[in-house]
Simulated assay, not measured.
Amino acid sequence: MVNSAYSEKIKEWLKFSNRDKKWIAHNFCLSEKDVDKWVEDGEAPSREHEETLLQFMNPKVVDLYIYQPWEIAKKILREWRIKGTNPYRTNDIFEFLPAKKTYNDYTKHSSHQVICFSRSVSSAAMWGHYADKHKGVCLVFSLPVTPHNEPNYNHWRIEKLHEDFLHNCLYNVLYKKNRVVFPDVFPFFNPKVIEDLMITKDKSWFFEKEMRLLCLIKHASSTDDEGNIFFSEILQYLSGIVLGVRFPHNVNYVQEWYKQLQLENIEKPEIKIVNSYISPNYFKIENEVFHDTPMGSFPYRKLLPKKIVDNGLIILPGKII
């Protein structure tokens, strides 16, 4: 069935998103000739291809959260940058540590940093641990996400950010009993193994409902004298601030403070600033605007391309989970 309007819609989207037909062919594991049938000839994609294509053309917006003490949140908002986490310096002794190893030296000179989000804004434990015992705030990021459709990689992309390999990849952290097992020779050639290490944590951290954004250091916006690495692009998606139940100021105070920042830098987006309160019936911290984001809110890829050969290895792609 020929549909020239659909063809024009795809062309418009490719131009707007700064992509091309090669990008579609790569992400859908198709030949450019197959893609030409959609883009140039107006042939309708199969139902499965169309559903997946629509997920790319219409990104889903999901809310993710970062808990901070107010003084650190003010620093983030004033300087308009957020510190990445060095894989070698975390508060989890087992972080990035493969099985049968007692010392983590693999990520000491990592090319990546991570920015850690939570899918929950209602966790009393998170407010207590990371937001100065409820006296801090929770920064809200509304992220337009699409599935990353490359075989063997189960993550999402954030629209309008760099699309370098393994950069701006948003992962759901996996909580497991056993640590990641590496072969005797560390496989630097296989990014998938490195990914597994970077997103696998002990089950005791499950309460965090963590998602991680992998960021290439070369795309950092700045550094400081202590060697900390900062990223600014992600702040374009800041959409709100939730104040802790013990926050020392009212909403008007924070609104006025933020307005002054906007006068200094008009690029800062409009955001919603809301109070939180203790749920009358549940062990939850609630607010009237922002809510926990279930995994079902994220787009998923339905297509399972044929197995491919990479470096002599057979790779069997799986669904995003």
Rank of each mutant, 00 (worst) to 15 (best):
V2A: 04
S7N: 05
S7P: 02
E12F: 11
W13A: 01
A25C: 07
N27P: 03
D34V: 13
D36F: 06
W38M: 09
G42S: 07
G42I: 04
A44Y: 14
H49F: 06
Q55S: 13
F56M: 11
N58D: 06
N58K: 09
W70D: 08
K75Q: 14
I76A: 06
W80V: 10
I82T: 01
K83F: 04
T85P: 02
I93R: 13
F94Y: 14
F96P: 00
Y103V: 14
T107D: 08
K108A: 15
H112T: 12
C116S: 15
S122Q: 08
M126C: 07
K135H: 14
K135M: 10
G136R: 01
V137T: 03
C138M: 02
F141D: 00
S142M: 04
V145T: 03
P147F: 01
P147H: 02
E150Q: 14
P151I: 03
N152S: 15
Y153W: 06
L166E: 11
L166G: 03
H167T: 13
N172Y: 11
L174V: 14
F182M: 15
D184H: 09
F186A: 08
F188T: 11
V193S: 09
I199C: 04
F206P: 00
L216V: 02
K218L: 07
D225M: 11
N228F: 05
S232G: 07
E233H: 10
L235Q: 04
L238R: 01
L238A: 04
L238I: 15
V245C: 06
V245A: 04
R246L: 13
P248H: 09
P248S: 09
H249T: 06
N250K: 10
Y253W: 14
Q255E: 15
K259S: 11
E270T: 10
K272A: 12
K272M: 07
I273V: 11
I273G: 03
Y277V: 05
I278T: 08
S279R: 06
N281H: 10
T293R: 00
T293G: 01
M295L: 15
M295V: 13
S297C: 10
K302T: 12
K306W: 07
K306V: 12
K307G: 11
V309S: 13
V309H: 06
I321H: 12
